[in-house]
């Protein structure tokens, strides 16, 4: 992971954003192309949202982001839209793991940061300081990054990238 600092507009979402609402089955049953999936990301939350999202935007969501199915198409659609960073109060288990495998950056943030962020506010994530800033509302907070075991995968840019680079999986090293 080259960058230690990310800046972008907030895509502000609520609690329990589920994988159906990230990408509907009516699309994911027809394609596994991330760019095609990205055209419909969050469509069932707001049909206009896919058109408004730009690469580099940062998701700011409430609790249990990625609730529901195991579909990896959900983080894949997000990645296809050019989004790298997801800030949420908490994440659903399978989504979190899938996001890490795909090299996305899921960080946990406190609720007050989410509550004081509006749609399209300017967000700065500083990994060295371990903090996130909303330069529009002035709110800032500490971020919690994935545990070390997973962070190695994130830093490599995902599990596939890790495998490309090392020719083995992270846990195969000691063998």
């Amino acid at each position: 992971m080259a960058s230690k600092r990310f800046e972008g507009r907030a895509i502000r979402l609520g609690d329990d954003v589920n994988t159906d609402n990230i990408i509907s089955y009516r699309y994911k049953s027809r394609t596994i192309d991330p760019r095609e999936l990205a055209k419909h990301v969050f469509e069932d939350i707001d049909p206009e949202l896919p058109k408004k999202i730009r690469p580099g935007d940062i998701i700011v969501a409430g609790k249990n982001f990625g609730y529901g199915s195991s579909r990896e198409h959900a983080p894949l659609a997000i990645k296809g839209a050019g989004i790298r960073v997801i800030l949420a109060e908490s994440f659903a288990r399978i989504f979190y793991r899938n996001a890490v495998n795909l090299g996305l950056l899921p960080f946990t943030v406190p609720r007050h940061f989410v509550e004081r962020t509006r749609m399209w506010d300017h967000i700065v994530v500083d990994l060295e300081k371990g903090r996130v800033y909303n330069t529009d509302s002035g709110v800032e907070a500490a971020i919690k990054q994935p545990p070390n075991f997973m962070w190695r995968i994130v830093e490599a840019g995902g599990i596939v990238e890790y495998y490309r680079r090392h020719g083995r999986l992270p846990w195969e090293e000691s063998q």
């Binding site: 579909r71 990896e72 399978i94 899938n98 795909l102 599990i159 999986l169």
Partner: peptide, 18 residues
């Protein structure tokens, strides 16, 4: 337990998972 497609691919490949 449920996993995503990449984890399923790893399980298919190695017969194990973390």
């Amino acid at each position: 337990t449920g996993v995503g497609s990449t984890d399923a691919a790893i399980a298919m490949m190695t017969g194990s998972l973390w």
